[in-house]
Each structure stands twice: as structure tokens, then as C-alpha cells.
Nucleic acid binder design. Sequence first.
DNA 1: AATGAATGAGCTTTCATTCAT
DNA 2: GATGAATGAAAGCTCATTCAT
Lengths: 239, 239, 239, 239
Amino acid sequence: MQVMTTTTTSVGTKGPAARPLRADAERNRALIIEAAAQVFAEKGLDAGFDEIARRAGVGTGTVYRRFPDRDGLIEALLVDSFDKMTVLAQEAIDTEDAWVGLTNFFRSSIRLQMKDQGLHEMLKANGPWADLAPAAKAKFIPVLNSVLDRAKAQGRIREDVGLTDLGVLMTMVSTVHDPDQPDLWERYLVLVLDSLASSRTGPTPLPARAPSDSRLHEHLERTSGIRSRSGSDTGSGLC
Amino acid sequence: MQVMTTTTTSVGTKGPAARPLRADAERNRALIIEAAAQVFAEKGLDAGFDEIARRAGVGTGTVYRRFPDRDGLIEALLVDSFDKMTVLAQEAIDTEDAWVGLTNFFRSSIRLQMKDQGLHEMLKANGPWADLAPAAKAKFIPVLNSVLDRAKAQGRIREDVGLTDLGVLMTMVSTVHDPDQPDLWERYLVLVLDSLASSRTGPTPLPARAPSDSRLHEHLERTSGIRSRSGSDTGSGLC
Amino acid sequence: MQVMTTTTTSVGTKGPAARPLRADAERNRALIIEAAAQVFAEKGLDAGFDEIARRAGVGTGTVYRRFPDRDGLIEALLVDSFDKMTVLAQEAIDTEDAWVGLTNFFRSSIRLQMKDQGLHEMLKANGPWADLAPAAKAKFIPVLNSVLDRAKAQGRIREDVGLTDLGVLMTMVSTVHDPDQPDLWERYLVLVLDSLASSRTGPTPLPARAPSDSRLHEHLERTSGIRSRSGSDTGSGLC
Amino acid sequence: MQVMTTTTTSVGTKGPAARPLRADAERNRALIIEAAAQVFAEKGLDAGFDEIARRAGVGTGTVYRRFPDRDGLIEALLVDSFDKMTVLAQEAIDTEDAWVGLTNFFRSSIRLQMKDQGLHEMLKANGPWADLAPAAKAKFIPVLNSVLDRAKAQGRIREDVGLTDLGVLMTMVSTVHDPDQPDLWERYLVLVLDSLASSRTGPTPLPARAPSDSRLHEHLERTSGIRSRSGSDTGSGLC
DNA sequence: AATGAATGAGCTTTCATTCAT
DNA sequence: GATGAATGAAAGCTCATTCAT
């Protein structure tokens, strides 16, 4: 079932044929999905239905009527999210330089996951929500495949990585959250992209270290008197 | 499993220097920490105190008396875990080839995280447990720093990565769990190491794809008729 | 199943005198009553209106519009049920031997209750639905009274039982449900009839005990080693 | 496990050996059982655990800790109730005239059921609670068997009725509830006893009709102008 | 008038934390 | 100090009834 939130563009193959708005129920459905998108994005897929209902401005029962189990609701969102990802992948295909396209796709889809804890959880291979909405995923896969194949055809990406490797790597990078350095992940994106390049003569410059870096160095000096050789380090769980 | 029973724990291999057990209380404390190590490893840091108490053979109240908040208990374990990691890092320093040492350290400490869900959660920079036990971490940092510095001195690792980058990258890789392919993470470790190498002429061979890969390819063919160029792909949330 | 569509229903066999269906509303009313008859029969008078609506093929709201409270709906059915009972009582009157007639009436009307949980609940004196549809009952009473009076006139039934005693006794017997022994109630019907007979020299033979009886005797022997004197016992809540 | 409410006398075979009071928890357990006895008696076995907890003066969680499922709680009560019934049956055995003993037992145990909706539901052969606490029942059965055997030995009760027949008949009679005539059931008890007697020359006088009888006769006269031959009728679902 | 979506109170159950013994 | 029983808020889910369309 194709579901649109108010902010989504259809990319499915069904075509954008005018679908007459149903009842007032359709509006509620949309409200629920929108609320769920927010709540799942903020709190993850375990969030309570009560919260979703409250934020949608409907009763709890309404949420349950529309989505008797959590999976159904998540799937509805998944369809939406994959539609978004497909748009991004399509942009990559439309980019002349396949490597640049791939790079941009990585960056934008990771950004998507970082703003949306729920999406991130859906995309992790393990966990209870790994196998939802295969149809939605199926639509996305060929598009991503084109992105990858073009990069390979242009000789820019190593031949031994595959489709799902890309998914895993994106998920990995979007794991890097730091409230103090919201852009920290870009540093690791660059590293990962370096690992995907078919070859490179030297390192790609890493994004500049974020301000909070000082934390670590203060820390080190305070604690151990040791000076790191490298100056461009950044914070992490180690600090 | 080696368990340290005081909050100010020695770093390194000092060994079991005789420190006489105090009261019953001290023994209980040890039992609780040992139980918590198991439980957190299996179920993560959210695990119930009841379970820990049961496994330690003490009452719930005893756990709370010893560790009024969860953070205290986690910190106690963190000390222990960093001791283990320090041992591993020391092995890296003792390895002639600094790059091999670094590589081995990555592999072994990731393996540690994968067997210990709690440790993994502690090391993730975000989350409620990001800033615990700075003292324990401080002891570890210089050792890790040596590992990094030696690799840099031998010219094997790019100069622009720092100490905490290593931590982030390890944590990222240990994010890759797949019940069907327990060794899947090694594939991404190789990629990450490729990104750290100061230069490379071509890709390092990736660990062979696991059997369950076929899932994706069946899927692709069934669904879209598209053939992936690359045969060495692996499963992920996309499939 | 014969369904009457007005609240003031004829008693007896007047037959399907042509009364033209009114609006759609009238047809819906009939559908609802028919559906309610089924549902109440199967699930009792507490059954949800949703189920009735679904089975009638109308919306929930329609059921509530037609029958703002449950009582109204039950009363409508009661009229119908008492019509059926009146038919049965009339057959008793038409039977030469008044005692046989009474007996048959007991048997058939109990059978009715056992197939219709709702009717059974309506006839129980207590409960929230005890005092419904007095008019419907009033039509039935004289007929039943004739049955009773004829039996008394022929001297076959004790003089001190009255009209409503018959109702109570029928309801009591139809209380005996056992999925394993669907005919168990006949045993107690015979006992009850024995109690109504004006006199008897010995016991009327009871219907043979059902196979599942063995449960109790196994049980007794296993547990207490006691042998019951009487072999014709039957299962119950005691076993 | 033998459970006593404060009002119960032990009849089990374990003997009245002094059992040391356990913890404070034992007191709560007793409070819960007592509360449950009240609540189940009033509202039936479907009553909410919240109500029980409130009436016992404990938290909901406490009830669940003690009785993780409803069956366990019901069984605890069942043990108690069967203890009470066993006392009554024992009194019957101690009565010289076995028939009088049987009669008294019927009367008192029916009275028990009528005050306790929960007990009544437990004793009904069908329903979800039919097969609980077989051990408790097992203790009761031999005693009841003695009651029956003595009556047979004295020739006062028909030979073809068995143990469980007695149970069914008691349950049947205790079905007769009428708020306006609390003693109505005694009328049907007399009838049932008449049916059990091995023989009788005429009817045993029925208990006098209760005042509310007038309802029916008013009703009849108002409605149909028919005069019943029999004057001693009583109210029921028919009126 | 018909619809069936919406409501929200109510029930069950769990669990982190406190407290009486 | 140790215990594990008690707590009570919270979450999941249902369902009788009302109401907007």
C-alpha cells in the first residue's frame, strides 16, 4: 500500500495518477503517520503509541484502528523513507560524475538517518524491524544498483564492494552521533569513501575538527602530560 | 573473567597482587560486578537490576545499596573493560610492525565489543553513558596513543587521523551485527583499515562473502531482473 | 429462522400476514434483529454491537440508532422467542395426555435455551435483563397456564406448583452445559419431572450416563480408593 | 498449598499442626485472598485485579507478584471453599438420619454458592475455570461420597443418582437468584429433593411463596384476565 | 438516515526503585 | 547490611458508545 505523508513525493511505479482523497479518516491517517515520523525520529521505534496519538491529536484507539500492530505503522513510514532515498539515489544517477553522485548520495542519505533515529533502526540489519516492507526496499534496490554500477563503470569505485555493502557503510557512519559536534560524522564519511575509492595516492583531507576537540587535549594534558603527534583529532567516547 | 573489585583499579597487567577481601560486603560487591558484567554483555546497559541481583545471588536491595545509580555500576565495569583494552593495546605496542599491531588491536577490541553489548554501548559517544569514568579512560589513552604514534612513525597510517578517530572507527565497525553472518564485520574492518592506510595502490581483498548472501541476489533477480556487476556482495538491512 | 419485525408482535401462529416492508430503515431493522438473534444466541447478551452490525451488514451507528439501548434490542428478540415458546406450548395443549404434553414442552423449550445462550440469559430471573418485554411475556403466560392447568386437571402434576415454577425449573435445567456430554441435561430433566409428578412409586429411569463419566470414577479410584455404590454417575464441576 | 483465610477452618488431612507465620508477605497474601474472596463473591471471577488490590490495601503489583495468573488466585480460593464444603459434608455424615444430613448439606452448600458468585462460577462444569485445583476437589469427593452412600444405605435416596449428580443439582438450584425473594431457591431445593427421594406418596410441602408473588398475579389479571388454578406460585423470569 | 471512524476510560501487565523486616 | 516484597506509574491494548461526515 502506497502511503504518502504530506511532505513526500511519489517515486513508485504506480504513477502519480490522481487519487481522490478518501474520508476524513485519510486525514487522520496522515496525521498519525506524520506524528509517528516525528516521534520515531526522536525516540526510536520503541516509542509509545500514546505519544504518537497525542502528537497527532487523536485518541489512542484511533492509532490502533489504523495500525493494529507496530510493524504496520513502521512499514508505512518505511515506504515513505525509501521513496525519499530513491529520490536521492536518482539524483546520483543524474550526476555526470558517477563518483560525485555516489558521494552526494552517501552524504544526503546519511544525513537522513541522522535526523531520524527510527529510520536508522529500520536500516540496521539485525533487530526486530529488519525484515519489514520488502516491497518498499525492492523498489529502491535497482536504483541504488545503478548508482553503484555507474561508479564501477567509470572505474572510480573498487570492484569488490556490492550493493548491500553500501547500505552497511551508510548505516555505520550514521552511527556517529555527537551532540557537541553535529557534523562529526562527515569526517568518517570521508574516511569510508576513501576506502571505497579504487585507488588513491594519498589521504583525502578530512573535514576540520570540531571546536569541542579541545576537550580531549585539555584532558590529555591534564591527565597524562602526553602530547599527541596528530593535531586534528576529535572527541568520541574516549573523551 | 577478570574482575576488579575496587573503584581505583590498576591499569595493566600488574597481576593479582594480594589484596585481602574485606567484609561480606566486599564479596557481594564483587559478585554483583561479575553478574552485571554478564548481564550487561548479554542484554545491554538497560538490563534490569533484578536480573543482576538474581544472577549474583543477592537481593535487589543489595545491588542498589552498593550502586545507588546505574552509572556507578557501569563505571565499575568500565574500569575493568578499559583494563582489558589496555592489555590489547599493549600487545600492539609490543608488535614489531606497528601497522600489524594496530590492525590486530582493532580486530581484537572490536571482537570484544561484539561479545559485550554493554561495552559497545559505553563506547558509543552519544547516549546516556557517554561521559562515565573519565579516569579509567585517561589511563587507556596514552597507551592507545603510543599505538597510533608508532604507526605514524613507521609511515603506515595517514597523519590526519587522531586518537579518538580510532575509537570512533572501532565502534562503527562493531555496529555490524548479523546473526546469519557472525563474521560479517571483518569485511568492514578491512575497508576501514584501507581508509586508514597512508596510501594503497589497489584494494585489499575483502573477506569472502558469507553464504546467506544469496538472499539478496535471489531477491534482486526475482524482483527487478537486474544483475549486479559485483558478485561479492553481502546481506544487510536492504535485503 | 423466523423473524418478527415489529415491536408489537402477534402471538401464535397467525402466520406471515402480509405487512409491507416500509423504508430501507425497516429492512435494516429486520437485518439487525436477525443478526442479533444469531450473535446473542452464540455469545450471550453481552455481545458487542459491532459484531451484530458487521453480521447485519450495517454500520455500528445504525444499530445504535435503531436500538439506543441494549434492552430495546433484547426486547425485540424476546417477542420473537416467546412466539416460538408459545408455539411449543400450544403443541402441549394439543397433546391428548397433558403430562406427555407438559413433558414435551419442557424438553423442547429447554432445547431452545441450550441452543440460544441469549434466550437463556433473558429467562434467568436475576440479571440486568429480567424485567424486559412484559407484554411479550403476558401473551405467553395464558398459554402456558393452560398447559399447567390441563396437567393438574388430569391429576398428573402436583397441585402446589405454579406457572412461574415451570419457568424457573426449565431455566435451571438448561443451566447444565457440558461440551463433552451434550445431552447431559436430559438426565436432570427427568429428575425435575419426577419432582413434579403428583406421586410416584419409584424413580423414573435416568438417561444413560455419557461415556466421559469414566473421568470421575478414574479420578475417585486414583485419588481415594473409594468405590461409589452407584454406577450411573455423570461428570460435573466436581471432576 | 493449603491456604487459610482468617475465617476458615482447616479440614485437610495435613492436620492442624502449628504452622509458623512466615513473613509480613504472608499477611499480605492473606489480605489479597480475603479481598479476592469478597470481590469474586460480589462480581464473579472476571473481576479486575485492581479492585482486589485496592480492597486488600496493596498495590496492583503485589497481587501479580503473589498470583501471576488469575487461575492461581482462584485455585487458592477454591481450596478454601472446598474446605468449607467439606466441613458441611462432614456435618451431614455426623447426622444420624442420613437423609436429613443430605438435605442439610444441600441447603447449606447452596447457600454458600448463592452468597458467592465466584464459587458458583467455579463449580459450573463448563466455563474457563472448570478444571482448576483438582487436588482440592479430590479431598472433597470422598467425603461427599460418604454422605451419598449413607443415604443410599438407609434407602432414602434413589440408587441411580451418583456423586456428581449431587454437584450438578446443587449448582442448578443455586442458579435461582431473585433480589426480591432471597429465599426463592428453597422452593426449588425442596422440589429437587423430592426428585431424589427413593419414593414418595405425595408432594412435600413447598416453602411458602414470597410476598413479591403478587407481582405475577397483578400482572396476569391486568393483562389477560386469566386466573391461575394454583395459588402458590412465585415470581421468575416470566414476570 | 447511515456510516464506521473516533473516542477515552479501563484493564492487564511490567519494572525501576523504595522500604519494612 | 541484606533481603526481596511492595510500590505505583506507565505502556499496551480493547471496546462500548458517540459523532462528524
